[in-house]
Simulated assay, not measured.
Amino acid sequence: MLLGINPLLSPDLLHALRSMGHRQDIAIVDANFPCDPSKHRVIRLDGVTATDALEAVLSVLPVEKDEPESTWRMIAYDDPSYILPIFAEFSDIVDQHVPDAEVHAIQPAEFKAMALDAYVVVVTGERRLYGGIVVRKGVVPPPGE
């Protein structure tokens, strides 16, 4: 255990977060998300919701601020205006860490491709449908900036 570190951040996840470079992505996905650990860097957080995983990750990960989009979720039921409760939760969590940030809705196929191209895919125990988000890593500015 470490002081000040969310206990959901496993050693493997902390290593991945620290290893990520600027503008690389992390995908936090639900338990039904199809990915092959032999082809992708996959970390499992079984029994953890995607929203709890996002909260833990954003407690240490800077989010990209110099691009118009830095967080993405899927469009549900082919309707971009349809807001599932998990989408609202994702938005609230992102807004707590990056005020005025918007979680952008993209088509499921685009989301899946983006997630599978991410630096790391975190497969959670989330059972809610469309329970995934992609976050782009930002930078930690030098002291005094």
Rank of each mutant, 00 (worst) to 15 (best):
L3T: 11
L3H: 11
I5T: 08
I5W: 06
N6S: 12
D12S: 12
L14E: 07
L14P: 01
L14M: 11
H15Q: 13
A16Q: 04
L17W: 04
D25C: 14
I26Y: 06
A27Q: 01
F33V: 08
P34V: 11
P34Y: 13
P34N: 09
C35V: 00
D36H: 07
S38L: 13
K39W: 08
V42I: 05
R44C: 11
R44T: 11
A50C: 01
E55M: 15
A56N: 07
K65D: 15
P68E: 07
P68L: 15
W72V: 01
R73G: 07
M74G: 04
P80A: 12
S81L: 12
Y82R: 10
L84C: 09
P85H: 02
E89I: 08
F90L: 03
I93R: 03
I93H: 08
V94F: 07
Q96V: 15
P99R: 02
E102Y: 14
E102H: 12
V103D: 04
H104P: 05
F111W: 00
K112S: 15
K112I: 05
K112T: 10
M114Y: 03
M114F: 09
L116T: 03
D117C: 11
D117K: 11
Y119L: 10
V120M: 07
V121P: 03
V122L: 02
E126V: 04
R128H: 12
G131N: 05
G131E: 04
G132W: 08
R136T: 09
V139C: 15
P141Y: 11
